[in-house]
Design a protein around this nucleic acid. Structure first.
Lengths: 193, 193
DNA sequence: GCCCGACGTGTCAATTCTGAAATGTCGAAC
DNA sequence: GTTCGACATTTCAGAATTGACACGTCGGGC
């Protein structure tokens, strides 16, 4: 599981509480690796039981600050260096593209256009985020964080270009195109041309 | 869950067995939405229980061919039109970039270079796949399938450019850079300013 | 006639992930 | 002095996912 190692990694720059980590996920990692509350708190407990973390401070509202142990750092490095990452991101948005045949062509076009539009919005938001930060590339977390942000920007730019292209790929006319309206045997629609 | 709807979608073009569907996932959908054997067979049974599919033929080795019912098609359309897709692909490869601070800079550079190289290989493979098919854009499955393939190609091209850039972002010198080499008690490093 | 690779399905335990509910406290603003 | 939003944790049921095991059959090549 990757969440475990993400937590170890985030704790590298100093002690943090579950709440802190949750905020970090929400703010900086959400588009890459989302995490829920229950997941983070549960995992933190397990990591502490395994000796990869220790509680080093108790704060106001039952707040517990976890600190990375040597064993934790070692485990993180082992994972990074000795296990192979899954290189293929699972994309529900793209899966739906594959299944677009279940919709009319107008509906399919709408979906693709919507994807393009959302990509544009995401690009704007990410750019604003990037501009709002005074990147200090001496700091590892910022150096690598910036790389992830940059990847995101490129992804959204690419997605827009792709969506524009894809919309144009769908033939215009769509006479008896509704796949829900079945009449008789599933005869293929007459090829336009 | 999306797997359920992926199966419904694939069955739109005709009756298929679990084995057939598994092959389709392996061949065309693996990079977008992987599925295991147990998942497919289990889900098929559940979908049939729910009346979204029916078994319409029995073949040689206990082979069962499932056919999409009207209720199944309706459910697929409902999902496509009325539920919002998760637009953010979860990328373990990118998560690791975020955590690269746990490695030395040389190791980090190696990882980024490796990502770029794998992206290049994936691009080659996808292009070969694309060229091997005589795309018939009258066929919905091929039209939309081709869009997914094209997205993949763009993704790998973009990933290579990004990786090249990212490699160059890492400062060269790396004197006391090994985060595993700890000297003395786990005293926290002095917070920079 | 036999062997093997592809065909074909089913089930199980363990892990991971989602989503919600329950509970309570601190601090600032009004 | 009260109220409210942010802080903070724990727990749980249910769903999704993984990975392995177990079982059996058809067809072509030797």
């Amino acid at each position: 599981m990757s969440l475990r190692h993400a937590l170890l990694g985030l704790l590298r720059e100093g002690p943090k509480s579950g709440y802190d980590l949750l905020q970090m996920f929400k703010r900086s990692l959400h588009q890459t690796w989302p995490a829920t509350q229950s997941q983070v708190y549960t995992e933190l407990t397990k990591l502490a039981d395994a000796g990869l973390l220790v509680v080093t401070a108790h704060g106001p509202r039952g707040r517990k600050e976890y600190t990375l142990t040597d064993a934790g750092l070692e485990e993180l490095r082992r994972w990074m260096l000795e296990t192979e990452p899954d290189r293929y991101p699972r994309s529900e948005a793209l899966l739906r593209v594959f299944l677009l045949g279940a919709l009319t062509r107008d509906e399919a076009r709408d979906y693709l256009a919507w994807l393009g539009q959302k990509a544009a919005e995401d690009e704007v938001a990410l750019t604003a985020f990037e501009d709002s930060i005074d990147w200090d590339h001496e700091d590892d977390l910022q150096l690598y964080g910036h790389m992830v942000v940059d990847f995101g920007k490129r992804l959204w730019v690419m997605s827009q270009e792709w969506a524009d292209w894809a919309v144009a790929q769908i033939p215009a006319q769509a006479a008896d195109d509704d796949p829900a309206a079945e009449s008789g045997p599933p005869a293929k629609a007459a090829p336009p041309s």
